[in-house]
Design a protein around this nucleic acid. Structure first.
Lengths: 176, 176
DNA sequence: TGCATTTTCATTGTGCGCAATTTAATCGGG
DNA sequence: CCCGATTAAATTGCGCACAATGAAAATGCA
């Protein structure tokens, strides 16, 4: 190798570090998302659910009988992800899948009795997680809104992203 | 296509909603993480990288010649994820994989010339994303730290999570 | 009405992400 | 020095996540 970099000092690049991992907001979000999933996993395992399946159940507990498309819009997932996931939920006996009689293109997802009953089992989960975070309800709400703002800004920017080659990045040299 | 299919099933659960999707901090983080990935994807495609591959490159650009284990600790990934990913990076000619002579168990990942050169191509990416977020550097830094705090709190709580059956969740009935 | 277009879901293929297991190398106590 | 325990990667299996494609049903417009 050209340089003997086995010496103690790290950082071969003394540069400011727009590319520094620890400065990346995207990595913080990526890592936090995995941390949530890791935290939920053992709790959801007792309910026989994966984390994405839990999200689908949250949607259905709010409004039963949605179409695959409606669930997908709520969660930002497409049929390629949802179709096999919903089939697994159906195999587990938590939902039923049936073609809509009025529009045979649509598949409606309905909770079974077991699926409805699972809601009580899951009711305590968010509070357990919130407790581990050590934040009060107000802080959690504020943070959630800020992070929702990130998603909204990114999704809004995706529209016309390829249309605009003009760098509208502005003058911030901040790091995301 | 207007709505008009909502006749049959109005909201079955009028309850306050610790389980309401829109109250879930975890879902906000989950959705934001996917939004970042969706935003980066077309930009990274030009570099021939996926988003996780980009994270590995960020790590290697900070310090070359790390072991698989060290990369995994930095990113929170295990060899089951990293081994095939690193093989793809090697196939793409961005890194080389070699057994450590001192400890044959370890595999060291070293940047190729092409891998080092790619750094310049990626240098502008974070600023592009930051521009789309419409936040200044200070806001980005504050948010990143708060979200890092979430990950730290969750990871800390994972230790002894199954050991402690006592609910030390405190008195908040907030929602995560 | 006829037919192209659009919508909805399913399918295929690639690439994570992680649990569980395997293999090989190293370490450590007797 | 030997042998069990530990460690690092690799492997296997399953479940997302998403692009691309396909098929069937509904829509719309000449």
């Amino acid at each position: 190798m050209p340089h003997a970099d086995e010496i103690a000092t790290p950082a071969p690049m003394p540069e400011a570090g727009a590319l520094a991992l620890d400065n990346q907001l995207c990595f913080a979000v990526y890592a936090a998302s995995h941390a949530f999933a890791r935290t939920y996993r053992p709790l959801l395992e007792r309910l026989g659910l994966t984390y994405p399946q839990y999200l689908v159940m949250l949607v259905l507990w709010e409004r039963d009988g949605l179409t695959v498309k409606a669930i997908g819009e709520r969660l930002g997932l497409d049929s390629g992800t949802l179709t096999p996931l919903l089939k697994r939920l159906a195999t587990a006996g938590l939902v039923t899948r049936s073609r809509d009689a009025e529009d045979e293109r649509q598949v409606r997802i309905s909770l079974s009795d077991a699926g409805r009953a699972l809601r009580a089992e899951a009711a305590g989960l968010p509070t357990v997680i919130a407790g581990r975070l050590g934040l009060d309800a107000g802080e959690l709400k504020r943070l959630r809104r800020e992070i929702d703002g990130l998603r909204l800004a990114l999704d809004a920017a995706i529209e016309g992203a390829e249309a605009a080659s003009k760098t509208d990045a502005g003058e911030t040299d901040a790091v995301a």
